[in-house]
Amino acid sequence: MEMTLGKRIAALRRQRGMTQEELAEKLGVSAQAVSKWENELSCPDIMLLPALARLLHVTVDALLTGEAIPETQLIPDAHRKPLDQMLLKIFILDTKGDKVRINLPLALVKMGLEMGMSGGSLSVNGSKALEKIDLNQLMALVERGVLGKLVEIDSGDGDHLEVWVE
């Protein structure tokens, strides 16, 4: 059975670890509106689609058609964005239920690496998960055109960490 727009929104929202209220707040609509979209009682306004797609980490096309887009992609040279316009997104959900999202301009990360920083230099809520990430290797992957979800860690103590480059 083909997945409907509402089901896709619900699935993607859960994947991103967001509640209906959080998604609604970020889009400037009510939680009831999001609930209606997910239950196929109404559809999101066309003007909201770009913001909704951005929050759910998919393209508007993928959101509407449901075409499977791999979470990690190799982008050819011709279609690559300059490094200055890319973001390193870190999402951490810890055992206590705290959610931390950090968006860093990739150029800033590169500058930090040149200063000798590493993944272990940044600690979020005392989580050790970032320590194990080799940011130099991540940067090398990005420079070769690999974008999307680059790291996903479910640590033994229950922390969940994702690193995206977009």
Binding site: V100, S121, G126
Partner: peptide, 10 residues
């Protein structure tokens, strides 16, 4: 509390 800290000396 939830915190973000930089341990590398800048």
């Amino acid at each position: 509390n939830a915190e973000i800290e930089i341990s590398h000396h800048i």
